[in-house]
Amino acid sequence: MLSISINFIFKLTCIIFFIGLMGIILNRKNILVIIMSIELLLLAVNLNFAAFSIYLDDIVGQIFVLFILTVAAAESAIGLAIITVLYRLKNSIELDPIKKKINNKL
């Protein structure tokens, strides 16, 4: 069984999750870093699922982890594909404003 306390693991996963969150929010330029941060978020979630699965002695959590792994792989693959397309269009992967600034007065 688990030798370290569940609280410790929960704190760890929280920290990882918030690092990922901050990575998304504080990062202003790099799309790759955002995708990495999302992976980090999913990783934290996965860890949490796995830990609780063992803690509660329930297999469902691990099944979920497997699902999330596949979803994360698919998501990062699609994300990278989008980045490639974006790069082909703009010759950079900087995060410009998505919306075009239109001089619209109300």
Binding site: I25, N27, R28, I34, L95, I98, K99, K100
Partner: peptide, 8 residues
């Protein structure tokens, strides 16, 4: 604003 990090 159109900035993704704002939305986040």
């Amino acid at each position: 604003s159109g900035y993704i990090y704002h939305y986040n």
